[in-house]
């Protein structure tokens, strides 16, 4: 019971964090067809900018400045770099962002070293929210979740209730038509790219103070974020939310479970046979928790490439 409650809470907060990063990625893909390999790098950049700024001006300034800096960086990429390769197709756009991800990672290593930096939450946030079964639950996890929820609500209102949001959604569906109607689509694209990057930056700034901030964080989160957007459906915001929570909950539950295929086969009386075969059949869920998301991604790509909530194929 204790395991279930703690795991659920951890899973939901981690899932919400995943969503903060995947929201921008899926939005950008939906609108421009660009699969941005550098998106998780924006997340990492957010953490490091926040770390650098907060060490001088304090935590809250860091949290505020990071998404702005990262958002501007994202806009610059969209404005100055992507158009240059656009004529060569989506593969080249993808390759360019892939190169940018590499550069960002290496720049961070040059400036901050190839090791974790000491980016910490401020003392005023370092307390336990409540106790469950004698264990304390850190408030900061709830804070991460809350930031994600507020951000999602803001994004939702922006997209559905404001004029800009309506133009964005129109541009996503029919860019040429929206442009013909007199909307400045290049600006809309730049704005969306910047917003997506800023969200990832915010996620990094908030999460970096809790999880380790190191030059590997982009790669580690990046592959999971790809899983999320694929499973949710490339281009679907709602799908991303659903998939983020799914993957978040799965990762937090899987580490504590010792189920294996052999257990499952035991139900039909093949347990001993499975154990004698060994290999894949006896691997415990906890030890392959890193594998399952990729298997899930593969299945979705092959069976239903539109994902859980995606419309297009």
């Amino acid at each position: 019971m204790e395991f279930a409650i703690i795991s659920t809470l951890n899973g939901v907060t981690y899932g919400l964090l995943l969503f903060m990063v995947s929201a921008g990625l899926t939005l950008i893909f939906g609108m421009m067809g660009v699969l941005n390999f550098a998106h998780a790098s924006f997340y990492m950049m957010g953490a490091y900018v926040a770390y650098a700024v907060s060490s001088v001006f304090g935590f809250w300034v860091g949290i505020l400045v990071a998404p702005i800096v990262v958002g501007l960086a994202g806009m610059a990429v969209e404005r100055f770099l992507l158009p240059r390769v656009h004529a060569h197709g989506h593969a080249h756009e993808l390759l360019l962002t892939f190169g940018l991800a590499l550069i960002i990672e290496e720049l961070i290593k040059i400036f901050f070293g190839d090791f974790p930096v000491n980016y910490q939450m401020p003392a005023e946030l370092r307390f336990s929210a409540f106790e469950v079964f004698g264990a304390t639950y850190p408030f900061y996890r709830l804070f991460i979740g809350a930031v994600a929820v507020v951000m999602f609500a803001a994004l939702w209102v922006l997209l559905t209730r404001t004029r800009t949001g309506i133009v964005v959604r129109a541009a996503e569906r029919l860019p040429a038509m929206a442009e013909a109607l007199g909307h400045n689509i290049p600006i809309v694209f730049m704005f969306v790219f910047g917003t997506g990057a800023a969200l990832a930056g915010l996620a990094g700034a908030v999460a970096g103070a809790f999880y380790p901030t190191n030059p590997n964080m982009a790669l580690e989160l990046g592959v999971i974020v790809f899983v999320v957007v694929v499973v949710g459906g490339l281009g679907s915001l709602k799908g991303s939310l659903l998939a983020s929570l799914m993957i978040g909950l799965f990762s937090s539950f899987a580490v504590g479970l010792d189920w294996s295929l052999a257990n499952l086969l035991g139900v039909v009386g093949l347990g001993d046979w499975a154990r004698s075969v060994g290999g894949l059949l006896t691997l415990e869920l906890s030890s392959i928790s890193a594998t399952i998301p990729f298997a899930l991604m593969l299945i979705v790509l092959l069976v239903r490439p539109a994902g859980l909530m995606g419309e297009r194929n």
């Binding site: 699969l35 593969a91 993808l94 890193a290």
Partner: peptide
């Protein structure tokens, strides 16, 4: 699959091996 989806399938297969 083709295009970006092909790239993602190959990526997922490699990650499967890696993990």
């Amino acid at each position: 699959r083709s295009g970006v989806y092909f790239a993602l399938v190959t990526l997922a297969i490699a990650e499967l091996f890696h993990s």
